[in-house]
Design a protein around this nucleic acid. Structure first.
Lengths: 206, 206
DNA sequence: GTCTATAGCTGGATAGAC
DNA sequence: GTCTATCCAGCTATAGAC
């Protein structure tokens, strides 16, 4: 019994603390997301962040070492969300349908949260680079795209690059020139058809 | 004779002044471009700008009303340069070759000066929107692209949108992920082929 | 851990002498 | 027109009481 008591007295207490710490960090991060979504990525200041989180600036520093540490944590959150969305199972077994579904997920992910997109995929914050830990989930998610491309017979690195340019181009135009609409996002079906047909002809040509 | 004297005494004096003013403005703008090219668009501060131009901050204000007025003048310069490049005559008479040349000009223009690209085509400066006068040349230049697309049988607005997404996507990936290289810019030939083939099939289909 | 208070800096913009 | 000097606002980050 004594063994259990020690375990219950020490190990859980550490868990409580870390849990409370993580909860506080999560609260701050939620306020940060709320702030950048309404005011833009560049408008994230520690004063305003603290104000919205109901604390003061020095308190923020007891949970994050610096402003860039906050950006890094946000980057990590976004990347994990992206990875979670990417690895969800697909409804169809058709490779083409799966690539399309995968791409639509990516575009929805980007368009539905522009500051998150800017943080993750545009190098939009001066002086900030994500840590390797925060970056890792994003790589996993992009591997899903490569996998779907491969299942459609797309292996050439140049074609993969062309694909990333095409999809990010659609996202960028949508966000920049028709925010809230679907002028470019609706073109994804035609774009995918165009792309796969192109890859097919280049395969038969060689 | 008296008539000539008055003309020579007044009209040229006004020209001198405006010429000197324009020259001073041009000097400041040159320093501004130099600054943003080395330090980035966000790093343009009036202090550093004045230091590089060899003047002081208040002097800048005697030539520009505000910092955004400087951005607007830079935008106008960039847009006029873009228009001048776009309207240059093409070597070939083949519509496809001309579209390709037109696109390569656009991509070179963007890639060769990233801050200028960010100022003109990404809405990258918080709180700044170009004036109508500064914006007008950019519209003319983009009309050249539409014209070349039309000569290749591309009239559908959706296809034009797809084209802008494709080309800006290539530019963006090139700038963001392979600065100084040509990993994406070299894909422009294949991308054009892909795009025109797609438009052709959709025309025959209807 | 949380606060008050503030350091230390940089930014845009202006007043007023010359 | 150009300068010196300065205002005022914003920022990140920290010192030190509690």
């Amino acid at each position: 019994m004594q063994v259990f008591v020690t375990v219950l007295n020490e190990s859980p207490r550490v868990d409580w603390r870390t849990a409370r710490r993580d909860a506080a960090r999560a609260t701050i991060l939620a306020a940060a997301w709320d702030l950048v979504r309404t005011e833009g990525l560049a408008a994230l200041s520690l004063r305003e962040l603290a104000r919205r989180a109901g604390i003061t600036t020095p308190t923020v520093y007891s949970y994050f070492d610096s402003k860039n540490a906050i950006f890094d944590a946000m980057f990590g959150e976004g990347a994990r969300t992206f990875a979670a969305i990417a690895v969800q199972p697909f409804e169809s077994d058709d490779p083409r349908e799966r690539l399309l579904a995968c791409t639509k997920r990516f575009m929805d992910f980007c368009i539905s949260d522009v500051p998150r997109y800017q943080l993750l995929f545009q190098h939009s914050v001066p002086g900030f680079s994500p840590s390797a830990e925060s970056f890792e989930p994003a790589i996993r998610a992009l591997d899903v795209v490569r996998e779907q491309l491969a299942l459609n017979g797309v292996h050439d690195e140049r074609h993969v690059d062309l694909w990333t340019a095409l999809t990010t181009g659609l996202v960028d135009q949508q966000i920049s020139n028709d925010p809230g609409g679907e002028r470019w996002s609706r073109l994804v079906d035609g774009a995918t058809e165009m792309f796969l047909a192109h890859c097919a002809t280049e395969r038969t040509a060689t």
